[in-house]
Design a protein around this nucleic acid. Structure first.
Lengths: 377, 377
DNA sequence: GTGAAAGCGCTAACAG
DNA sequence: CTGTTAGCGCTTTCAC
């Protein structure tokens, strides 16, 4: 291997080997036939010149770039960074590289990202779409025949696209059920949804849950757990928060400052979990004595603090891997309907949630071993 | 805008507009001259057909893909995910998309990632290299003339490549100096380096710090702070840990179980900070009463726990942005020497570190307002 | 101002 | 088995 110029083409290799361009091409692309002698000389020439196949040229011919695009709100978030990790690894294993972009939940950025990726001729796109009434950029690109897989969330107009997500309702249902089993009856829900309990109940009855925002789906899971236990939900138990640690902490402090009789709480998102936890600290509350708590997403700190925080954990990396797999299947021509994946979150009971009364039998052990079900990966 | 086929080319647009391919090309690429009438018809045709320029073809002609590659150990880590965010945003703003891959610190994966990116004809690569004796994949690609920017770390043989990093030594120097100012004299250092104090001192004297691993640079920063205060460092104060929370927790517990007289500690990495903190919890230690502590990297949980943890924080997003900017400058032809960037970490004094004795005057306030220096961004 | 033609690096018929 | 040839979609001289 010698020093090499900017770009060594197949022609350079052919010349060096003293054969024709196509002869060289055949051995380099290891298809078509070539004599042992030719093969050897071409390979030697390629090695000597440091030949690197130009995938751009290959892509122009084949129509496939072996590159996929990923569009998420923020790759720096703990959720999407883990998802991206699973996604890139899985894509890479299948021979695809990944182009990423962030939207910050801005529909315009989303639209321009889609256009850019389309112009770069990615073979498909995985997208965690921005909630909007007219997701036209996504619809357009999908109409043009580019494979698209929805990640983590869906919305009206996009129902026909394959969706890879976690069962949000089930996640919060699990968390709430665990608290109920521990004997808690008054359970606060820290939630981002702005819907009232009756609205949520109606949605749960009449619409396709997967078309709702994750926050609404999770709230519905909470309501279901209550209903399963024969309990009525109350708006007074819903602690409304914006999507930030500060907002959640403020909302929770406000709630705790007011009159209430809750003995437990569940937060429906990683950020809200942090905010709620901060509120508990600020109020000087001791978990689980003053309150039992189950958070969302297993973050670094949940096992760092004392008591360790119980959470319902989403399989983030596997979610990303599943999205990559689904997209690649779509690229290979599988039908969208076959590509839907719904993974289950798993309950991790630790020290922040205990029995409401000494008499309650169910301990943390009971939940800890709970097997995953309905998990296709 | 009507329904469109798989791929609308410039020829389709030309035909629809009733002009030649080159006429269409000229208006679509908005260079060259065209009459108002032609321009209008072409634009209309393009809109009608939903024409999307094929960047692959453009790239083949121009030799530039307007895509850069990023190679890091793990995009899911809190450090690199934040860096990636800054990097993608900055690249995007300059008109470049980003292709990512993870190495898990495996040199073979690194090498194959580099090859893949090179074959995809990225315009340049930002890489946080795997430590190895012969970084030949990186050297090869750089020799071939592909712009390469080193991210976060350098190593022998790679000195000639531009480096965008945080001043590691200064970061730990700042943390240690803060503790010293608070009156602490016996300060433990939780570190990943395996070098002894004499070795580190020799390295600090004789070699280019930037060629050492960040862990060694940080340890040297600690030694410098001690030296500045007229104190001798001791190997007994170095708590050796592998790169994992568990390892750090174990090492720290072992240290605390043994005989020691430290009143303060500093961890030199985010992971080690978590591990050390877990050790404090496990031992039932109360910060800052039992020990003053300054961690590394401002993580979610550092302000969630009570007392809030003081840290020296790396400007992660800006680091990524700076790397993108440097790489793009390299692509535009700037000389490598002009591209080096060293950012400063900033000390965030919170509640986990207090004066060793009531008499010490320096309080947290003194540090909080400390301005950034030597920061070019 | 406009069209014809060459070519980026590669693949894939197609003759020889 | 091997070489010639024709593009993939685009830009860019170069005549007209």
């Amino acid at each position: 291997m010698v020093s090499r110029s900017a770009s060594v083409t197949i022609i350079d290799v052919a010349r060096e080997a003293g054969v024709s361009k196509s002869a060289a091409a055949r051995v380099l692309a290891r298809n078509g036939s070539a004599s042992a002698a030719t093969r050897e000389r071409v390979l030697a020439a390629a090695a000597k010149l440091g030949y690197r196949p130009n995938q751009l040229a290959k892509a122009m011919k084949s129509g496939s770039t072996r590159t996929i695009g990923v569009i998420v709100p923020d790759v720096a978030s703990s959720f999407f960074s883990a998802v991206l990790r699973g996604l890139t690894d899985s894509a890479r294993a299948a021979g695809f590289e990944v182009l990423v972009s962030n939207t910050d939940n801005d529909p315009d950025i989303e639209a321009s990202s889609i256009d850019l990726l389309a112009e770069k001729r990615v073979d498909g796109i995985v997208i965690a779409p921005v909630f909007q009434d007219e997701p036209s950029a996504i619809l357009d690109i999908a109409d043009e025949g580019l494979p698209v897989v929805l990640l983590d969330r869906c919305m009206p107009r996009l129902e026909h696209l394959p969706l890879v997500c976690v069962d949000h309702a089930d996640a919060s249902r699990q968390a709430t059920a665990a608290l109920l089993k521990l004997g808690h009856r008054r359970i606060a829900l820290i939630t981002e949804t702005t819907r009232t309990v009756p609205e949520l109940q109606q949605l749960a009855r009449e619409s396709d849950l997967s078309l709702l925002r994750p926050s609404a789906q999770r709230a519905i899971g909470y309501l279901r757990a209550l209903a399963d236990a024969g309990l009525n939900a109350e708006d007074a138990l819903l602690v409304r928060s914006g999507y930030s640690v500060e907002s959640a902490a403020g909302a929770m402090i406000g709630f705790l400052d007011g009159e209430h009789d809750v003995t437990a709480a569940h937060a429906t998102d990683a950020v809200l979990t942090s905010g709620a936890y901060r509120a508990f600290s600020a109020k000087g509350m001791r978990l689980p004595d003053d309150l039992s708590f189950v958070g969302f997403d297993d973050q670094d700190w949940t096992t760092l603090v004392r008591p360790a925080v119980s959470v319902v954990d989403q399989p983030r990396q596997r979610l990303g891997a599943a999205a990559a797999t689904a997209l690649i299947a779509a690229i290979r021509g599988n039908r969208p309907e076959e590509l839907n994946v719904r993974l289950n979150a798993s309950l991790l009971m630790r020290e922040s949630a205990v029995a409401a009364h000494p008499g309650v039998k169910a301990g943390a052990e009971e939940f800890r071993a709970r097997p995953l079900v309905q998990d296709r990966w």
